[in-house]
Amino acid sequence: MFKRLMMVALLVIAPLSAATAADQTNPYKLMDEAAQKTFDRLKNEQPQIRANPDYLRTIVDQELLPYVQVKYAGALVLGQYYKSATPAQREAYFAAFREYLKQAYGQALAMYHGQTYQIAPEQPLGDKTIVPIRVTIIDPNGRPPVRLDFQWRKNSQTGNWQAYDMIAEGVSMITTKQNEWGTLLRTKGIDGLTAQLKSISQQKITLEEKK
């Protein structure tokens, strides 16, 4: 169930391209415009997507990853294993993690069937560096609404905000991946996880038929 919630949630996290980005210092504006741009692209490019579902990787690479804190999220997933990894191991892992996100997020976007969304009203940021933004996803086919909290983090150097995690039903996506990959990290280390991520990233994206 959580895996499905995570995939549905990713439908609204794909941010804007650099040329049309919203105010990078306001995570609420980023979330709002990102959702609108993403849904528009999914709707307008269905012919290309249906002809070649792996085209979704391109959308992810162009529109999402430049505005997601990939390395920060990847380091959180590694936890204690990050500090013990060599620079070469980290570089290989982050490259594999990025390719994994292209496949995983692309597969999530393949679930698009006309969903709509509501974003919580903007709250004062103050001096906060981590801000959760509640998004409610509404399914046109009558499924119950899904309420999610996207975690946005302020870059201490640039002042810009980027998304790095999502919490559904009190469970963090980062925590879920830590639990899912924990045994592999304990037995085969970061190299074993890197190899698995490379394998997963090679899987073809498949479209979910409308139910």
Rank of each mutant, 00 (worst) to 15 (best):
P47F: 10
Q178N: 15
P132S: 10
A120R: 15
G74M: 02
P53I: 06
E209S: 14
L5C: 03
L65C: 06
K83P: 05
R153Q: 01
A92S: 10
G126H: 13
Q203N: 05
L109S: 14
Q202W: 10
G106K: 00
T58E: 14
E180Q: 03
T25R: 10
Q203Y: 08
L65H: 07
K83H: 05
M7Q: 04
A108T: 13
D127L: 06
T129F: 13
Y93A: 04
S201Y: 09
G142S: 08
A9V: 13
V68T: 08
R41G: 05
M111G: 07
L5V: 05
A21I: 04
L193E: 05
K198C: 08
T187Y: 15
N44F: 09
K71T: 06
L11V: 06
L78E: 01
F39E: 00
A34F: 14
G114Y: 05
T176D: 00
E169I: 04
A195M: 09
A51L: 14
A18C: 11
R186S: 02
R134S: 03
Y81I: 04
V131I: 11
T136R: 13
L193A: 15
A34G: 07
P53W: 03
S172A: 11
K83G: 07
Q62P: 01
K29D: 15
N141S: 09
E180D: 04
M7H: 01
M166C: 15
Y55N: 11
K204W: 07
A163D: 14
Y55I: 07
L184K: 06
Q36V: 10
Q46R: 09
A51T: 13
A92E: 13
D139N: 15
F2W: 09
Q69T: 14
P66E: 12
V12H: 05
N141W: 06
M7G: 02
Y82R: 01
D149W: 10
R186E: 00
L109N: 08
Y28W: 09
W181K: 10
Q178A: 07
R134Y: 01
V131T: 10
E99D: 14
R50H: 12
A120T: 14
N26C: 10
K177S: 15
Q69Y: 01
L148D: 02
Y164A: 02
D32S: 09
Y67R: 04
A85P: 06
E99Q: 09
D40E: 11
D61K: 02
V131R: 09
E45G: 05
Y112Q: 03
L56K: 02
L197N: 13
E63H: 02
K204Q: 05
Q103V: 15
R98V: 08
D127N: 08
K154Q: 14
S156F: 03
D32L: 06
V146M: 09
I190P: 11
E180T: 05
P47H: 13
N44Y: 12
V77I: 04
P27R: 01
N179T: 12
Y117L: 05
D191W: 03
Y112D: 04
F2I: 09
T58S: 11
V77H: 13
K128A: 10
N160V: 11
Q123V: 12
D139I: 15
I200H: 08
V70C: 10
Q89E: 09
G79H: 04
I138S: 08
I138G: 14
I138K: 07
A35V: 13
Y100E: 15
D165F: 00
K128R: 14
P15M: 07
T20L: 10
D32K: 04
I138Q: 12
V60S: 15
T38P: 02
S84H: 11
P124H: 09
Q89P: 04
L16I: 10
Q123M: 14
V60T: 14
I167F: 05
F97C: 07
L184S: 10
V171I: 11
K3N: 06
A104K: 01
D165V: 01
Q103I: 14
E45K: 05
W181H: 15
M7Y: 10
K83R: 11
M6N: 01
Y67F: 11
P144R: 07
Q89D: 11
F150W: 13
P144F: 12
L11E: 00
R50C: 06
E99P: 15
Q80I: 07
I59G: 01
E180F: 01
A95C: 07
F97S: 08
L193G: 14
Q118E: 13
T20N: 13
T20F: 14
Y100A: 12
R143V: 03
V12K: 00
I13N: 02
L207V: 12
L197W: 09
G182H: 12
L64R: 00
N44V: 13
Q107V: 12
E45A: 09
R57D: 13
R57S: 11
Q36G: 08
E91T: 07
D139E: 15
A35H: 03
I119H: 09
G159Y: 08
I190F: 02
T20S: 08
K43H: 05
V146W: 14
N160E: 08
Y72R: 00
E209L: 12
R147G: 01
E45R: 03
F39H: 00
A73V: 03
R153A: 00
R153I: 00
T194A: 08
Y72I: 01
N141F: 08
Q123F: 14
A9H: 01
K211I: 06
Y100G: 07
L76G: 02
I174C: 15
R143C: 05
D139R: 05
T183S: 07
L185V: 11
M31H: 06
T129N: 12
W181L: 14
R41F: 02
K3H: 00
P145L: 07
N155V: 01
I49H: 09
A21H: 09
Y117G: 04
K37F: 13
L56W: 07
G142P: 09
F150E: 00
T158G: 07
L185I: 14
T20Q: 14
V135T: 10
L76W: 05
K3A: 00
I174N: 13
R98W: 04
G142Y: 14
M7S: 02
K198F: 07
T175R: 05
E91R: 04
R143M: 06
L78P: 01
V135S: 05
R98A: 11
Q202M: 09
A108K: 00
I130S: 03
D139C: 15
T58Y: 07
D54H: 08
R134V: 02
P145Q: 05
G182C: 11
A95H: 14
A168P: 15
Y81E: 14
Q89T: 05
P144G: 08
T194G: 07
D139V: 11
A108Q: 05
A92F: 10
T58M: 11
I200K: 04
K71F: 01
L10I: 06
L109W: 05
Q118S: 13
V146R: 01
L64D: 00
L16P: 04
D165A: 02
K177T: 11
K3W: 02
P53G: 12
L65N: 06
W152Q: 01
D165C: 02
M31L: 05
P140T: 13
N155S: 03
T206W: 11
K211Q: 04
G126I: 06
A96M: 11
K188Y: 03
W152R: 02
I133H: 01
G159L: 13
Y112V: 07
T187L: 08
L78M: 07
P27Y: 04
Y82L: 06
K177L: 07
E169P: 00
P144V: 08
Q118M: 12
T86R: 05
K71R: 09
Q36I: 10
Q178K: 04
A19R: 03
M6H: 00
P124I: 14
Q46G: 08
I130V: 06
R98C: 09
F2N: 01
A18S: 13
D23H: 10
I59Y: 03
T38N: 07
E33A: 09
G170H: 06
A95F: 07
V68S: 11
I59V: 11
A35K: 00
A92P: 06
D165S: 04
L64T: 05
V8N: 00
N44A: 13
A168Q: 01
N26P: 06
L11T: 02
P47W: 11
I133N: 02
A85V: 05
Q157C: 05
E45C: 12
Y28P: 03
M1Y: 00
E180A: 02
T206L: 10
D32R: 07
Q89Y: 05
E99R: 03
Q157F: 06
Y67I: 07
Q69A: 04
K29L: 12
I13D: 00
K188M: 10
L5Q: 00
G74S: 06
F97Q: 03
S156M: 03
T136N: 12
K43T: 14
K83Q: 07
D32N: 08
D61C: 04
R90H: 08
E122P: 12
Y100C: 13
G106I: 06
K210I: 06
L184N: 12
V70H: 13
A51Q: 11
V131F: 06
A9I: 13
L184F: 07
A95Q: 07
H113G: 07
V135C: 06
Q62F: 05
E122I: 13
F150T: 07
A92V: 14
R98S: 11
Y105E: 01
A35R: 02
G126R: 11
A163I: 06
K128P: 04
